[in-house]
Nucleic acid binder design. Structure first.
Lengths: 219, 219
DNA sequence: AGGTGTATGTCGCAT
DNA sequence: ATGCGACGTACACCT
């Protein structure tokens, strides 16, 4: 990991053209070669960057970073304030818990949390336009296509609609209906879902997890 | 701008739970208070972060960062390797060229670049589900709804479809049709568009810009 | 504050 | 490689 503090100006040519007027900034060069230019504010996103793999040509007053796609990042170095490097070693990486996959897992384990009488047919049921989160069947034998989201927004309704339209073509699956499941569903998404005869169900992750292992709720 | 290099482990509790085992990392604290923890690889995205505004409570062996939503970032400092700060001053900010807005602007100036005979009715025509990029009329008097994207993907077709369905309700606008315009359109998006009777047009940004001010092409 | 759309999105996984 | 969906998406813009 190399960190350079310098007054610099920057030009980027790639998907778009971008220019950074002269100012003091932090330039981070990671072990994989990626370069990021940070201002002293504005969340974690750099002003400019070039991901690995790339080639860095370093001259006293100009750095030129290019990748295979033809994107170029030109950093004009006007005043070098600091230049340090460290060895980090391999990072063990981030461990996550509580993302959509876990929600889906919990609901697959007990679909009645979505609606009484549902039984799971298949998780990640694949169609030719992508995998359906949960495919269930209700007591009447109707196939129920379920899209699970952490947050229920309009895109999720579109996605479920596409799956339903696609699966309608398969006579062995008819009749079928859809349920949109999320921890919370925005009003617009509810309206869109209703207009397409898609039911909406809001579920609580903590309570689902509580059902799975009640003693964990004590912590 | 403060940069700390330290062996540390990290816990985040917020939308999800995340844990980082002990390793050497770079901790960036910007003037606005935001905190980012970087490994020595993996593009510009930090492993963990906390955006401004937040509160940072700094103790010798633990930093605790919290925001108003109740998210917490706990950094356990195991070995401090470096701790430096710099004054950057205000950053003049990034100047961009070539984003969707510019493409839309150029096409609004001359809709015949999309299709012969089109005339502009309104740019950013607002509907109750969002603004339509370009609303035009063709020589036959048909309203033409145009969605402009840098890259034409399936989402853009969905978006245009929503607008069309919405505007179909307004009898004063009928008949109407849609055109999906982008610098390049993916095959899947073309198929989806075709199945909905939406035309696809690919345009070249450089040539559009050339038409607008031919002498600029010389530079 | 909340909704919608854009992004050099990034990232991960499956084909 | 490309397609596709998730993301603590972030971010600007508008109501």
């Amino acid at each position: 990991m190399r960190v350079v503090i310098a007054r610099c100006s920057v030009n980027y040519e790639g998907r778009l053209s971008a220019h950074l007027p002269s100012a003091v900034r932090l330039i981070m060069v990671k072990a994989d070669g990626c370069v990021a230019i940070h201002a002293d504010g504005g969340a974690y996103k750099p002003l400019n960057w070039m991901n690995a793999p790339n080639r860095l040509i370093e001259e006293p007053h100009e750095w030129r970073v290019t990748n295979t796609k033809g994107d170029t990042l030109r950093i004009t170095m006007e005043e070098l304030l600091s230049d340090s490097s460290w060895e980090f070693g391999v990072d063990p990486g981030l461990q996550k818990d509580g993302v959509e996959a876990h929600l889906q897992e919990l609901l697959a384990a007990d679909p009645t949390r979505i609606e009484d009488g549902l039984t799971l047919v298949r998780r990640e049921h694949s169609t030719d336009i992508g995998p359906v989160d949960l495919l269930c069947r209700d007591p009447a034998g109707v196939a129920v296509v379920i899209e699970v989201k952490r947050r229920g927004e309009i895109d999720g309704v579109e996605q479920l609609t596409r799956y339903l339209a696609r699966m309608e073509r398969d006579p062995t699956l008819r009749p079928l209906r859809g349920i949109f499941v999320a921890q919370s569903i925005k009003p617009q998404a509810k309206v869109l879902a209703q207009s397409r005869d898609i039911a909406c169900v809001e579920v609580d992750y903590d309570s689902l997890r509580g059902i799975e292992s009640p003693q964990q709720a004590l912590f």
